[in-house]
Design a protein around this nucleic acid. Structure first.
Ligand SMILES: [Mn+2]
Ligand SMILES: [Mn+2]
Ligand SMILES: [Zn+2]
Ligand SMILES: [Zn+2]
Lengths: 145, 145
DNA sequence: ATCTTGTCTTAGACTTAGTCTAAGCTAGGA
DNA sequence: TCCTAGCTTAGACTAAGTCTAAGACAAGAT
């Protein structure tokens, strides 16, 4: 896992103090934060940091291909620094808990030519849904009562 | 393709004039409309129809499992009446064009047990991305110029 | 036929997520 | 040092969707 700041430096892109704090906030954790959560945490280290800079910076990192933008529900977007490792996501329909997962095959291979409508298909992402252990036991108890 | 109104009637759910117009607007087409687009079109047939009713009704149809809610980008949700046919989506990164596609494998089968984090995984959807024929030729011409 | 009750619909206020703008601030090059 | 391009900021603005309170409607009871 080469760290995000290192990866960002490879592009000709100024690493300002604000951008560094945002990148480190995103990198340090391994969850999938919203822009607001990143702002909240980054502001602890740099209180004058603005919301606009967080949004601008995240959009730029996505455009550079170093951060993934996930829109798994209709709520806020989530940002994933793990862009250099192909992976998919498993989401709990009860509580929203999100896990990284790795499938055993590439879904692009499962799309026959006559289903491609003339597109050049470059990538595919899978969203798995289900119930996490806690939500499952909670549901079972609820049904019992 | 059993029609949406028929499927909705199977649930004990009142089919009011408003709900019928919304369902028929959604069903008639085969694209993936936003709530605003549905409102726009439905209002042509029932001018007094309100935005709140469109949103309420779409949410109810989703809860009944008869309509799919798609959140493929961070913009508005899209509503898909084709909930009784398992399928996935192919999206053009240039223009947003969206096509229904059918994969040759079920992604759930390709998620090993040790990647399930104790979840009960019930379903999976694949989002394919690429460029549609028009956007591809547009991109090629742009590169040439 | 009228009443009752719960459900449905409505306009518009409100919230949330995100973008835009205009001004000031830096940092690096001439 | 001065210039300039790019970066950051506060706050206004927009878009998508939810909530609320009131009225309309519909089905069953009398
Ligand atoms: Mn991830
Ligand atoms: Mn579809
Ligand atoms: Zn859960
Ligand atoms: Zn296209």
């Amino acid at each position: 896992m080469s760290d995000l700041v290192t990866r960002l430096r490879r592009h000709n892109w100024r690493i300002t103090p604000q951008r560094r704090v945002i990148a480190e906030t995103l990198e340090g954790s391994h969850v999938h934060f919203t822009a607001e959560q990143i702002l909240e945490r980054a502001v602890e280290r740099m209180p004058e940091l603005s919301r606009a800079t967080v949004y601008n910076t995240l959009n730029e990192m996505v455009a550079l291909g170093e951060v993934l933008e996930l829109t798994l529900d209709g709520r806020s977007k989530r940002y994933d620094p793990n862009a250099d490792h192909e992976h998919h996501h498993l989401i709990c329909e009860g509580c929203g808990l999100m896990k990284d997962v790795h499938a055993m095959a590439d879904p692009v291979d499962w799309l026959p030519g006559d289903e491609r409508h003339g597109f050049s298909v470059t990538r595919a992402s899978i969203t798995y849904r289900g119930l996490c252990p806690e939500c499952r036991t909670a549901a079972a108890e609820g049904a019992q009562a």
